[in-house]
Amino acid sequence: MPEVAVSCQQLLKVFDAGDQQVIALDHVDLEILQGELLMLVGPSGCGKTTLISVIAGILDQDAGVCELFGQNLAAMRSKDKLRFRAQHIGFVFQAFNLLPALTLTENVSVPLIINGVKRSIAERKAQEILAAVGLGKRMGNLPAQLSGGQQQRVAIARALVHSPKLIVCDEPTSALDHETGQTVMHLLKDVAMQQDRALVIVTHDARIFGFADRIAEMDDGRVINVRAATPNV
């Protein structure tokens, strides 16, 4: 039986919107297992992004408990939380969010540099992972010189380079065409997935649902259904 990577219990998050309060997470319970790819789906504004922000430790919940690999991030000192995030979480964003002034190698080496790895070692490791995602010949390029799909592959390489335990992806295929989206998902499934690692993907893109192990449906700040996904054909 795989161990639990992420455990959310009764998560509550409320935002102030002028005079009103918006309940973004309404007592959410969710578990993500190690070696699992879980997709969070649901309409816009249902709380998906808020949930992955809490899971990734970049937003604090108002109530409830969220544990990552047995660690309660909300209870950690901010310095420890920062270190935990730097070491154990990888991010893939909808808008790629690569640093435009850095080459691909430099972009991918950023998480390692944040973790205090020497630059030469970080860049060597970045080059290895870039080669693994099929960009071995473009390492010296700037992000602007790449297509959207290629940029997302760089972002995946950046998310993997420091061997995190959890990879959080926010709409990784929404800015890409169908074919490129499929390629990116294959990459995530083949390169990123490991037995001791969990992937959470927020998406609207029904075409990639088949890549998930399980799909958690959200609505109005609640997880309303968790089901096994139909394998991709």
Partner: peptide, 11 residues
């Protein structure tokens, strides 16, 4: 946004 990315990644 770039500072935000660095912050999210643990800077």
């Amino acid at each position: 946004r770039q500072f935000g990315v660095l912050k999210a990644m643990g800077t």
